[in-house]
């Protein structure tokens, strides 16, 4: 496989090896995970499509044209139209922005909350640890979807009045999904902290007079992040599914914000004569979630220190 030119090109690297760092090693291992690389590519295409797509595909998301209603894919409407004759490609590109944004935002909330609680629990120990872990156990045994539905049901109207229909629903859904998914991260971070806080380098920092906050933020946390990154990537997928589920049940975003789940909700009653309307957004959700799951798998292989010996 290696021809002469490539050998010459790799030689200087072999002579003066790059400084190996944790992240460079991780990146190298990640690159070797073929499915994770495919997942990254697919996800990047999706992100570029929803960010730049609406600029390139100029059909409006809400132009009603009854003559074109429920048409399958054609040249003028590559993904077909819905029951009001609105262009599905335009709606999916626009709705995809919301779906992906909900996933990322909810993940950030879940991770920040989980890291804070796990760090406090693991660093302080004692009664704080005990209380926070009982709280974590409690939240782990709450069935998330029914509670999610209950909260959306109770607070939706009030938030709509306070900050407008789109922002209100967005904030509510993101906060609630993120607020019900922090527990695994908290457990992971706590476990890392329990072992890291006894390590020599932390003791050294403590001996040099680093205050607790500095010990946590500068010394322990960076070393505890690997499992959090893996959990975070999978949380994006879980949050996207949670938002789609809410929208699919008709309790997520309103009809004028066509997230992928909402499109499925609207499409499910005409499944027998307009299957394309359900299949395209469903496939979009599936591909996104599958890509993220493979990326998470690749990240786990790349970041799990137990794997270092094996490769």
């Amino acid at each position: 496989m290696v021809d002469g030119d490539a050998l010459v090109e790799t030689l200087p690297v072999a002579v003066a090896p790059q400084r190996a760092s944790l992240w460079r090693d991780a990146l190298r291992r990640f690159r070797r995970h073929r499915l994770a690389m495919i997942g990254t590519t697919v996800l990047l295409v999706m992100v570029v499509a929803v960010v730049a797509g609406p600029l390139a595909w100029r059909l409006p998301v809400n132009e009603i044209d009854f003559k074109q209603k429920l048409k399958g894919p054609t040249w003028s409407h590559p993904l077909g139209t819905d029951d009001l004759g609105q262009d599905l490609l335009a709606r999916m590109l626009y709705g995809g922005r919301i779906s992906l944004a909900v996933g990322v935002a909810a993940m950030l909330i879940a991770i920040s909350l989980g890291t804070a609680i796990g760090a406090a629990s693991g660093y302080m120990g004692g009664a704080v640890d005990h209380t926070l872990m009982r709280l974590t156990d409690l939240f782990l045994s709450i069935p998330a979807l029914p509670l999610l539905l209950l909260i959306v049901y109770l607070f939706r109207d009030a938030l709509k009045k306070a900050v407008g229909p789109e922002a209100g629903v967005f904030v509510l859904i993101v906060v609630v999904i993120g607020g019900l998914r922090w527990m695994p991260v908290a457990r992971l971070v706590r476990a890392q902290f329990l072992s890291l806080r006894e390590k020599e380098f932390v003791e050294a920092a403590r001996g040099l007079g680093a205050p607790p906050l500095r010990q946590v933020v500068r010394h322990i946390l960076p070393n505890a992040m690997a499992p959090v990154i893996v959990a975070g990537s999978l949380d994006v997928a879980a949050a996207i599914i949670a938002e789609s589920t809410l929208s699919f049940l008709g309790l997520g975003f309103p009809p004028d914000i066509p997230t992928w789940g909402r499109l499925l909700f609207d499409a499910k009653d005409t499944l027998d004569f307009a299957p394309h309307w359900a299949i395209f957004p469903g496939t979009a959700i599936f591909l996104t979630v599958l890509s993220i799951n493979y990326i998470g798998d690749g990240l786990r292989d790349a970041l799990d220190p137990r794997k270092v010996l094996a490769r």
Binding site: I241, L271, D297
Partner: peptide
């Protein structure tokens, strides 16, 4: 297995209806 847990239940349900019922 990866495909299985990446397919949300609401989409699998609709696909099953499409295939086996319709």
């Amino acid at each position: 297995a990866f495909i299985g847990f990446s397919l949300p239940t609401f989409f699998t349900g609709l696909l099953f209806i499409l295939l086996f019922s319709i």
